[in-house]
């Protein structure tokens, strides 16, 4: 039997096209679009990784501002293998951070020579106990083994920072993203007509690049004589996961599936109304609100100091406290 054939009720099937330590290129077959995209989204944004979150600046006489360097430090990929053994800092019982929820890296450099000294990611030294030997190491992939450049120092300049790396997800900040771009494609031959290709001439096929290889993997080009199937849905998905280095690409995929399962399990759990049904637990991470944190008040307070006392209102013997508050019908503003 053709293991890659179409048809109903086929087993989900994954076929790797290419897999190395930076990317995993694979096809998922007999899958559905919704889940495939969910997987993509989870791999992009919801796999917990480790990244520098808090920086204690002990010394910085470099030309770059503190917050500038801190931002750069945050974006340095750290090894996240074994990050599951760490707690989210907010779930930890400690105050601030501890060995259970954070890895501390120290960056200390001083330029004493006449040359300009570059401080690299390799100069980040883990200085706290951690669950595994790997987690928290800066990712270094270049041939020189230097990692990314953080800052340049001139003679006499020094930098000393304590970087507290915490667990987080990319929904909160892009620095926790485990993957770079994730390639995602279905129906390369456009047999489903999801896309109406624009073309200068009459035939789009002449103008648009066609990945023959992929088309063949996707059941070959469209047959001329075949009737268009209006009910067809995409079933075969091409994924191309590229890691930033913190996790291996295959780990990203498996962790992605795992995270997705957890999320779904949570939904089921919530629906069944378990003992923990107050919505407090969303499987750990929760994305912040778009405007940054929930509002405590109902939006009827004003930042203006003593906003509700106007000189006019209080100085008027007949008037009430404020012109606004005393308006008939306005007192019940909070009932809206």
């Amino acid at each position: 039997m053709d293991p890659y054939g179409d048809g109903d009720n086929k087993e989900i099937n994954v076929r790797f096209l290419q897999a190395d330590n930076v990317r995993a290129n694979f096809i998922v077959q007999n899958f559905n679009l919704e889940t495939a995209n969910s997987l993509r989204r989870v791999m992009l944004a919801e796999i917990p990784t480790l990244a520098i979150d808090v920086v204690e600046v002990l010394d910085n006489t470099s030309v770059l501002a503190d917050e500038f360097i801190c931002h750069r430090l945050g974006l340095i990929p750290l090894c996240s293998k074994g990050v599951d053994d760490l707690l989210y800092s907010r779930d930890c019982d400690c105050e601030g951070y501890c060995e259970n929820c954070a890895v501390v890296l120290t960056l200390q450099a001083r330029c004493t020579g006449n040359e300009i000294m570059k401080v690299f990611a390799r100069d980040l030294v883990v200085s706290s106990a951690r669950p595994t030997e790997e987690v928290g190491n800066p990712v270094i992939t270049d041939a020189e083994g230097q990692g990314s450049c953080i800052v340049k120092l001139r003679r006499g300049q020094a930098i000393h920072m304590r970087c507290i790396a915490k667990k987080g997800i990319a929904k909160e900040h892009a620095k926790w993203a485990p993957s770079a771009a994730i390639g995602f494609e279905y129906d390369p031959a456009n047999k489903l007509r999801h896309l109406d290709y624009w073309c200068e001439g009459d035939d789009w096929k002449e103008e648009w690049p066609m990945d023959e290889e992929r088309v063949n993997l996707d059941g070959g080009p469209e047959q001329e004589d075949q009737d268009f199937d209006y009910d067809a849905v995409p079933t075969r998905f091409f994924f191309d996961v590229e890691t930033v280095g913190g996790l291996d690409p295959d780990q990203i995929v498996t962790k992605g599936i795992e995270t997705l399962q957890h999320k779904l399990a949570d939904v089921i759990h919530q629906l069944k109304g378990g003992e923990n049904a107050d919505g407090a637990d969303f499987g750990g991470a929760q994305s912040p609100q778009m405007n940054g944190g929930g509002y405590q008040d109902q939006g009827y307070t004003t930042p203006f100091q003593g906003g509700n006392t106007s000189v006019w209102g209080s100085g008027n013997p007949a008037g009430g406290t404020t012109p606004y508050g005393a308006t008939p019908g306005y007192g019940q503003a909070s009932n809206w």
Partner: peptide, 23 residues
């Protein structure tokens, strides 16, 4: 570089994963 001559590309909705109807 393997791209469309006129700079267009098929894109997918990030929310649903569906291919957008226009390039």
């Amino acid at each position: 570089a393997g791209y469309n001559y006129y700079g267009n590309e098929p894109m997918y909705s990030g929310i649903t994963g569906q291919e957008l109807a226009a390039d």
